[in-house]
Design a protein around this nucleic acid. Structure first.
Lengths: 128, 128
DNA sequence: CCTTGACTTGGAGTCGACTCCAGGTGATAC
DNA sequence: GTATCACCTGGAGTCGACTCCAAGTCAAGG
């Protein structure tokens, strides 16, 4: 699979895919005879994982470190686990903040809704 | 209240508070005789609101627009409501993605945990 | 054979959101 | 009265994460 198809499938631009590869965020993808990337299943899984982590806001630097550890094999399992645990907690904390903000937005929207209603009611006597 | 105290109270740097003011994200704060900002309650509430919205990732540009509408009075209520509703949906969508990522992280952490356990069990025969 | 079009690279540019800095002012402490 | 300190301004710098670009290569179609 060429880069354009992968780009299409995951909604990540080719530029970004190449960028991820050159900074070590995804492992080097094999090339065909003429130097063109040929993504195979394992590459796709990696892309999908990174896409997922990035969409949740995990920083690139942390992910690079994680990917680096993965490449070093089983002896880094403990370290990887620690990274994931830390990021999990940070993510949960961000979500908690967002939950609060969501509540405030809902509240404000409710207030505006009733303000609009009230205005409309005031309109009735005058009728347009 | 001077800027340093507000900064302290909300965990926002003085630079950022001034920055927010000059880009119109918070309304101008009154100054004392010698030009120094004197934050009063309404200013604090605004700062807190912005802090909350920013912590959830609402873009500055959108918030500037919203604040601008607030300053124009009641006739902008409908527009403000629409902005909040849109941002509410975007926020909910981001949280949903994060929820998925959280699940994947938890799963992966679980896998690593059992990998570590297995390794430790393999250790027992050899004993250190 | 030449054009077209998708790919390649390395490097530069952009964007959002701060963050820092130089140079200046004014109130308070010694 | 001068040193210190927190404040002020406008502008420049930084950072993370892309995004764009010029110049080049290669395979396939007309």
């Amino acid at each position: 699979m060429k880069i354009a198809e992968v780009s299409e499938r995951y909604g990540i631009s080719s530029d970004t895919l190449r960028y991820y590869e050159r900074i070590g965020l995804i492992q080097p993808v094999n090339r065909n005879g003429s130097g063109i990337r040929d993504y195979v299943e394992v590459d796709m899984r990696r892309v999908e994982f990174i896409k997922c982590m990035r969409s949740a806001g995990l920083p690139i630097e942390v992910l690079i470190e994680y990917v680096g550890l993965v490449q070093q094999g089983d002896r880094t399992i403990e370290a990887r686990k620690e990274i994931l645990k830390e990021q999990r907690e940070l993510l949960a904390a961000r979500m908690k903040e967002m939950q609060i903000t969501l509540g405030i937005l809902d509240h404000k929207i409710g207030v505006y809704e009733s303000a609009v209603l009230k205005k409309e009611q005031e309109m009735i006597p005058g009728e347009d």
